[in-house]
């Protein structure tokens, strides 16, 4: 094959990671003072901000209110300078709408919406430097995962009750090996990609998306690799939350 060798014979990937290894994750909760909850995450070169407002009264038309649970409203809008080519509009294009819809479904599965009937929860995510995708419609597993993880931290920061963390990670399949947390190079190579959002305590899957074709027998491996990576993400996010709560309690003088 003339292309790039994604996995060396010694089992190392292009950026020097092992197959199941994650990129470096750094995160912070409580970035903004005015929002109810906010968080920032860096996963390798992918950076995302998430802000949560709510639960509050339904904005706009009241007919959208749900009598038995809260309405989860998500908007995905990527900064115009976040991609390699400058984008014309930050949101409203097809990909942003799709991402917003997916986020909404993911978080409806995790947030205990029945506790806040007839109210609304807004989740806004903003990838700052997403993985560079030249084709607009190509799904960026990395960007989506970073957005979900940032949104989880922001929802936690807002104090909205959830069943569990939602931890997302992508996985791919190269030369008979499942790779966790794909980088841009690996995504651009065009192999099969799987995006997974997991509720780690119960092992339930909140979102699963796969494109490109993959043999049925291999699916289990890739799924397991993604799930394991999502559990690793959970460990890291849990650490961030505990650290944040610890700092907050010191500030409050407890």
């Amino acid at each position: 094959m003339a292309g790039l060798e994604l996995l060396s014979d010694q089992g190392y990937r292009v950026d020097g990671r092992r197959a199941g290894e994650l990129r470096k994750i750094q995160a912070r909760m409580g970035v903004f003072a005015q929002a109810d909850g906010s968080a920032y995450i860096e996963q390798g070169n992918t950076k995302a901000l998430a802000v949560v407002y709510g639960p509050h009264e339904i904005r706009g038309s009241r007919s959208r209110a749900l009598p038995d649970r809260a309405l989860v409203n998500c908007q995905y809008s990527s900064a115009t300078f976040s991609t390699g080519e400058r984008k014309r509009r930050p949101h409203g294009d097809r990909k942003s709408c799709e991402m917003g819809l997916q986020l909404r479904q993911t978080f409806e599965a995790a947030i205990l919406t029945q506790l806040h009937p007839r109210s609304q929860i807004d989740i806004y995510v903003q990838p700052l430097r997403g993985v560079v995708s030249l084709q607009v419609l190509q799904a960026d597993g990395g960007t989506y995962a970073a957005c979900v993880n940032a949104a989880t931290l922001a929802v936690l920061d807002a104090g909205i009750p959830m069943r569990d963390f939602v931890c997302a990670c992508s996985a791919g399949f190269v030369d008979g090996t499942a790779l966790a947390d794909l980088s841009h190079v690996e995504e651009a190579a065009g192999g099969p990609q799987l995006a997974l959002a997991l509720l780690p305590a119960s092992g339930q899957i909140a979102l699963l998306e796969m494109d490109a074709r993959l043999h049925e027998d291999h699916l289990e491996w890739v799924l397991e690799a993604a799930a394991q990576a999502a559990r690793d993400v959970h460990t890291l996010l849990d650490r961030v939350v505990r650290q944040h709560v610890h700092e907050a309690s010191i500030l409050l003088g407890d």
Partner: peptide, 16 residues
């Protein structure tokens, strides 16, 4: 120049 009043700042900026 392009100014993006993102919904991050306030929910009123959502959509258009």
């Amino acid at each position: 120049f392009f100014v993006d009043c993102s919904a991050n700042a306030t929910p009123e900026f959502e959509g258009r």
